[in-house]
Design a protein around this nucleic acid. Sequence first.
DNA 1: ATCGGCTCGCGCAA
DNA 2: TGCGCGAAGCCGAT
Length: 450
Amino acid sequence: MQDRVRRLNQVPPHEGPIVYWMIREQRAHDNWALLYAQHIAIQRKQPLYVVFCCRTDLDKYLGTTRMLDWMLRGLEEVSQELEKHHINFTFLLGDPPTEVKKFCTHISAGEVVVDFFPLRPYTTWHQEISQTELYAVTQVDAHNIVPCWVASTKQEFAARTIRPKITRLLPNYLLAFPKLNEHPFPAPESHTNWKTVHSKIKVDTSVPALTWIEPGAQAALDQLKTFVSQRLPAYAEDRNDPNKQALSLLSPYLHFGQIAPQRVAFEVSQNVNHTKNSESFLEELIIRRELSDNYCFYNSQYDSFAGLPNWAQETLDAHRADERTIHYTVEEFETAHTHDEIWNAAQQEMLQTGKMHGYMRMYWVKKILEWTKDPEEAQKTALHLNDTYSIDGRDPNGYVGVAWSIGGLHDRPWFERPIFGTIRFMSASGLHKKFNTAAYVTKWQTLTLD
DNA sequence: ATCGGCTCGCGCAA
DNA sequence: TGCGCGAAGCCGAT
């Protein structure tokens, strides 16, 4: 466990309750950050608090009903589980670092544990909470199976450069989780009024909650079970066909930390015969996901043009003046009003379900590059739409997916083209060869009056 | 249906 | 310093 843990300030731990500030890992079980916090709390005979803080003006940060409903229902389950284990769960409203600092000072915390989320808003919050003399702040990578800073000490160039590093270390980490204990040093209980919380947080209500899939840790485990028994057997063959139900559907749970990647990988590697299907799935789940964290952790410009590899920036620069014969506004993209019915179907899939099939995501982003005035606007548009409508938006996987599609990240150059330069191109004719595009369009097209 | 060429640079072997 | 090879492709030739 020790190499999952790093100190964020130099304040020595002292007498006082232990606080786990939960951000990314929204689950009670299989959570290394909580397990570590409980471990030191028991060692020091201290009560344990888990605190979650949410702004009330989420509408200013692309917050939607879809995302808030998913998150709060998951957290309600977390609070019930923690209560069963005599661990205090406190929901705070307001500016997160300010409110969490206030809380920690108020209860005279001896040490504060945070989880690991390599995106700027959260790294900034972690810096802010660490700037104190009052309590030690410790970070635990509870997301990656091989901790991000252990897997590699630099930004990796491609999957093939990080793969051997992770594969070599994996046997040391792909193990069963210890159980969360009933905490022997109780804290005062606090009860969250979830209806009040929901009503106090302002969000964009035009993006409705999802009804076809249930949030939460129990639902995640159920989904994993169904995936392993029903969809994994055809995963390798069918995963790139958007008409087939072959994918795990776990990314919403993984994004909100409602299930641990290590749990998913452990169950698949323990209980499934080693086949091309499990290999193909574990490559996605472990290598590609940890490569995304690696990029965001070591490249603070993960969401901008300047973060792209040099060869990609150069080739896109050389094609800035290329004529864009088709150009759409954000609104036209957003409402699925392009000339390309396959692209519109993908956009509709995301609008309606909060998810877009993995294969279509690549095509969808590459077409935004083709139909937008410059790569910066294309990247901004793709991220804006993904972060607003996808339930797994604002995730390192999303930033890497967009950078791969628009800016050759973790990819190689291909042959020269207008607009794209040597960035890999994708065309509708390629999609026709791979799956029944007409069926996909029919499935997602909606009646429009114009 | 299958194949080669397109094009760059990392990382390892030498 | 040379060389193999790579995160999901395209296109034209055979």
